[in-house]
Write a protein that binds this DNA or RNA. Structure first.
Ligand SMILES: [Zn+2]
Ligand SMILES: [Zn+2]
Ligand SMILES: [Zn+2]
Ligand SMILES: [Zn+2]
Lengths: 149, 149
DNA sequence: TTATCGAATGATACATTGTTGCATTCACTG
DNA sequence: CAGTGAATGCAACAATGTATCATTCGATAA
């Protein structure tokens, strides 16, 4: 695992601990798998990885529960258009994740743009709608993959 | 079916025809079901409705192919966070749909905000990313449902 | 220590959503 | 009428997600 990922993982674990949320070995295992990956992983991909790491079988519901937990804690995010999950690098900030998802290489880059969420929330407010969760995912081609094609 | 929906349906059919895209009876049936619904419908919901309307069985792959077609034509949109589909009211304009999805009543309202797509596209451009498709979905509570709770 | 309690996980079965591959039909063209 | 490509039918299957109940485990309080 790259050093940066290692830092991100430890930081995420700390964030949870400070909140009093239990960071069990299995939860850490899933989060570590997310940090170790260079692309979004599906729940069953994660199951395979964690099963290997722990050298035993893990039931699917456990994986899903753990993913729910990690997403609630803001240390992971579900990418709806991929049915997949990524680690979030800055759980300490309260933010909506915005993703650029490359159709060719599968990479998902998170970008930060508070203006986007503000803009949409204002629209919503005008309609009396209270936003609880934002999904903003752009699919297309990343720079390297454009050259390749 | 409300008059407004009826107009929308006819308009969508025309848009497709003008483009030379084939609007077959089955495709119309699916689109009509979408326009008749007051909420996003899953692929299998749609299958049930169309099976009733045509009084025969329809294989799942047909429904999915037709939904792909309708989405490509811009007359329907998939809501990723619901695994469901809605009719789009203005296929003639080239736009990214932005949805407010109520967690309580299931309603999905489309709002228009060109600024949002522009803002994100600019961010993407800066990173050399070419956006092909945008997914913007806000979940939360609509005005009526806030009162109820 | 021991009883109790709630959170987390295990285990099984099942539900929902989406796809692959190939056959068939159908409308249009020459 | 024959040839062609698009659309649909069909069967099986893959992938994703959930419901339910049992079990484990650690913390807390008697
Ligand atoms: Zn984030
Ligand atoms: Zn790429
Ligand atoms: Zn739209
Ligand atoms: Zn509502």
């Amino acid at each position: 695992m790259p050093r940066e990922a290692s830092r991100g993982l430890n930081s995420a674990i700390n964030v949870c601990r400070l909140r009093g949320a239990q960071m069990t070995p299995l939860r850490q295992g899933v989060l570590k798998a997310l940090w170790s990956a260079d692309r979004p992983l599906g729940a069953y991909d994660l199951r395979d990885l964690v099963e290997k790491a722990f050298d035993r079988q893990i039931p699917a519901p456990s994986i899903y529960r753990i993913l729910d937990f990690l997403c609630e804690q803001g240390v992971a995010t579900r990418i709806e258009s991929l049915n997949a999950y990524v680690a979030c690098g800055h759980p300490e900030r309260d933010h909506a994740c915005v993703f650029l998802v490359c159709e060719a290489c599968g990479d998902a880059t998170e970008i930060e743009n508070p203006k986007v969420e503000k803009l949409i929330s204002e629209d919503a407010k005008r309609l009396g709608f209270v936003v609880k969760h934002q999904v903003v995912e752009m699919s297309g081609l990343c720079a390297p993959c454009q050259q390749a094609s």
